[in-house]
Design a protein around this nucleic acid. Structure first.
Lengths: 238, 238
DNA sequence: CGTAAACTGTGAATGGCGTTAACTTCGCAT
DNA sequence: ATGCGAAGTTAACGCCATTCACAGTTTACG
């Protein structure tokens, strides 16, 4: 049952997350220290150990929240698109992903930058579950596209055997769906191009040549659209 | 002139870099502290300030060294390929880039991970110069390919105006070469796919689906080869 | 040669960090 | 009303980067 203390505790956990995020945004990742969070909340650092087992655990919780936020924004952006316009859906979700990354570069770095932060964890992590939700969002869209408007995919025996076996494992053990392996392959190819390109841009690794990578991103979307048999439409000005 | 002290100083600088790198490899990036480096060298931390202005400056120097090493490996790999086999040259340099990244993931993270470490620098950095050398290596190869075996590129007026202007600036102000803008565009597209894909793999962001991303990487190389009109050949077993 | 300057190191100190332990305070259930 | 546990505190440990005053050694020069 929901006691009064439970509510207070949940509120404090929420305040800790919000404070950590504010510091992350305003002062950068290295400023997100237990002492800084506690200071900002009018507490002392050891008190935070009542809520999180360690600094790393607090950060992993924040990562989970961020994954959930990002997933939510993608899903709600999807709802604003005509239900049967698969091309628009794919474009919207891709652009929204990039838009969130650019609007929240430090959060994005926490989610998709070099890992390590607090190293690996044995148990299934809260953050990992949330990350899976994000992956699922893309996967569901891809699956819907495949069912409504099948696009060309390689036959199983056209796929490199070493890759084939891994795709099979991912399909059967993780996704548990019934799809040709070629669809999984195309999905991963698209995802790698999308996340790879966005990461490079957000982390500043394209600045050596491009001040604004938006047109390059759109160029990538035209290519991906072509691969998937979708009609590309330029972004709306809104 | 080259005094005795200069030689000793240079040797110490080298030892500092080597020690820092060893710690980076063996204990991870967060263990690369001034105290740890000094401890390992039988010195005290403040002594290191005689050689580097700060912890961040030391790291930036290390980054420069690493860029130089990577560039060297790519260049020497190129020399082991028949001079006129452009397809093989492109494949070798791409595979060698990935191989170095996988063999030195922590170093790679320092070069291509999320930046920030010590924030921006006003003056032209040693590390930046070294990074430019790496970029130049790829660019020279691309230029050689274009001259020897031109591949299809979009005409200037087929390129998004916003992109066209940036490509022009990059070509004229940075590269200073005489090439169609379409070549620059294709170069960046290829580079983004290459570095984007390798980064995702090295940072573990493909592990959700793939245990070994090598076949996926090769698949990407077949696509890039096709785009550039090159004949793809599988990696040699050696 | 001798001496002053420059270079290379040390030790102590400051302030920040994560984390632990001992201790207080207060809400709440029996 | 009593007692337990949750939520805080302060103090402390051992890290960290960085600065400063100081000492020893090497070099340069008159």
């Amino acid at each position: 049952m929901e006691t009064r203390r439970d509510r207070l505790r949940a509120a404090t956990v929420r305040e800790i997350s919000e404070t950590a995020r504010r510091i992350l945004v305003e002062e950068g990742p290295e400023a997100v220290t237990l002492r800084a969070i506690a200071r900002e909340m009018g507490m002392t650092a050891p008190a935070l150990y009542r809520y999180f087992g360690s600094h790393g655990e607090l950060l992993r919780h924040l990562v989970g929240d961020l994954f959930t936020e990002l997933t939510g924004e993608l899903r709600s952006a999807l709802k604003r698109v005509p239900h049967d316009d698969m091309g628009a859906k794919c474009l919207v979700v891709s652009r929204q992903f990039r838009a969130w990354a650019l609007a929240h570069p430090r959060e994005y770095a926490l989610l998709f930058g070099t890992p390590v932060r607090g190293a690996r964890h044995e148990e299934v992590d809260f953050a990992e579950e949330c990350a899976q939700q994000l992956g699922l969002t893309f996967m569901e869209l891809f699956l819907e596209l495949w069912e409504k408007q099948p696009f060309p995919v390689p036959a199983d025996d056209e796929i490199d055997p070493a890759l084939r076996e891994q795709l099979r494992r991912y399909r059967d053990d993780v996704l548990g769906v019934d799809l040709p392996l070629g669809v999984i392959q195309k999905f991963l190819q698209c995802w790698i191009r999308l996340q790879g390109g966005v990461s490079l841009e957000v982390f500043g690794h394209l600045e050596f040549a491009l001040e604004d990578a938006a047109p390059m991103f759109e160029l990538m979307l035209t290519e991906i659209s072509a691969v998937l048999g979708l009609t590309y439409t330029p972004p709306s000005k809104g």
